[in-house]
Amino acid sequence: MRVALFVACVDDAMFPGTGRAVTSLLERLGHEVVFPADQTCCGQLHWTTGYRREAAGLARRFAGVFAGAGGTVVTPSASCAAAVRSSYRSIARAAGDPGLERAAAGLEVYELTEFLVDVLGVTDVGARFPHRVTYQPTCHAARALRVGDRPLRLLRAVKDLELVELPAGEECCGFGGAFAVKNADVSVAMVADKVRHVRDTGADVVCALDNACLAHIGGALSRLRAGVRTAHLAEILASTGDPS
């Protein structure tokens, strides 16, 4: 099957390993991956920070680029998938742009684990990852997309991976986009608790479906020299040995 890969702008610039992992994973499963080169940003940051005019411009652009690419869109970013699937309707309404609302409704966008489990019907993707891993259900994955246990089912099928549950996992890590700087004190208080829970699991690796949240958690772990690293779930699923 032909898949149009949407790599979030943050992932493109800061975490290119995630896009590479999705590409190699989907190709390993026998699918054709294309990367529409005109893609940039879905507009989520502008929308959630209150810049609706700018968000509408970016949403129109995104809808145009991916309508042109045709077929199924897959992204490793849960929050960007949620932005396109649910916020675009609000963006279009705020902008009084029914054309954008129709264009957004016509896009078929999946977050990676939804695509693997629901569309391809696989949970064992042939990965091997010999580490103790905990999974952070990020807010957009858990509550906007409701991916549920899909990520866990995929992780359980990874060879040599020891999965440990993260206590209070569904509580927000405190990132929240601009919140992390606008309300830095509260944000830091939240991530401090998240990091404490992560360390309590004794995991080597904490994974999630959003690199922005992982940058927040990982930034705090790194500052504390906690010896726990972060990895996008796609990187674990793409792995066939020890990537360290």
Binding site: T18, R20, A37, V181, V191, G218, G219, A220
Partner: peptide, 24 residues
Amino acid sequence: GLLGRWTEARDLTAPPAEPFRAWW
């Protein structure tokens, strides 16, 4: 400056030399 509010308690990963699209 004020982006220092991020690094008060959190490190930031340095961006890699090659973004995804260049790799592609």
